[in-house]
Design a protein around this nucleic acid. Structure first.
Lengths: 104, 104
DNA sequence: GCACTATATGATTATATAGTCATTACATGA
DNA sequence: TCATGTAATGACTATATAATCATATAGTGC
């Protein structure tokens, strides 16, 4: 049986991949259909579809049908907070490593 | 060449695994040596060591030597904010799925 | 029903990951 | 220097992941 720590890992895993991060970033503008998403991130339709359904089942995205098109959106605003906080950490890391290089 | 999106994925990946989340949770109490960490999370010493060095190189943990012992600590306080925010999301997801079940 | 568009899925491949056991490296103190 | 305690690494296995190509499914309008 899955416990809390596994669910937390699932959410984080759903964010922890470059293609998926690009999708998240693109969806900052609001819900978008698959046909808009995959050209925007320069990935194949099928690959994009897989990443989308992976994030859907992890609880990161929501999905809405409208005729032929399927619209995906970020489900919880906190997802963006998480991603933004990580960007902050990365920037700190990069500036630290930069200083270390200059110190040589 | 690695770009920003890859670094973000690296940080997230370093958090996106149950064993590593257990380590992070244990390190909330402050820095701990490997000999304290692996019994606390009930994992083998070698496996624990691998996860620790993975998180070290991702920039999630810091490391300090003191004689025979190696002390690891959470490097950026924002790491805990990220993990806590994810816990929040998980709780929202769980209560939502619970409601869906009851609705049947 | 048929053609068309949009999305999802099956099969496959290459690569990455987590874990285990055995061994090695390293620091300390007798 | 030798025995001991602590951490890291090599070799290996099983499993998961990301990506691709081809195909299937499903909604729309004729």
């Amino acid at each position: 049986m899955k416990d809390l720590v596994d669910f937390r890992a699932d959410i984080l895993k759903a964010l922890a991949q470059p293609t998926r991060l690009k999708i998240i970033d693109f969806l900052r503008g609001g819900e978008r259909c698959v046909c808009e998403i995959f050209p925007a991130i320069s990935e194949e339709q099928s690959n994009t579809s897989r990443h989308l359904s992976m994030m859907l089942s992890a609880g990161v995205l929501s999905r809405r049908k409208d005729g032929l098109k399927i619209y995906y959106a970020i489900k919880h605003p906190e997802i963006l907070d998480v991603v933004d906080m990580v960007t902050l950490i990365v920037k700190q890391e990069i500036s630290e490593r930069h200083k270390l290089l200059k110190a040589v």
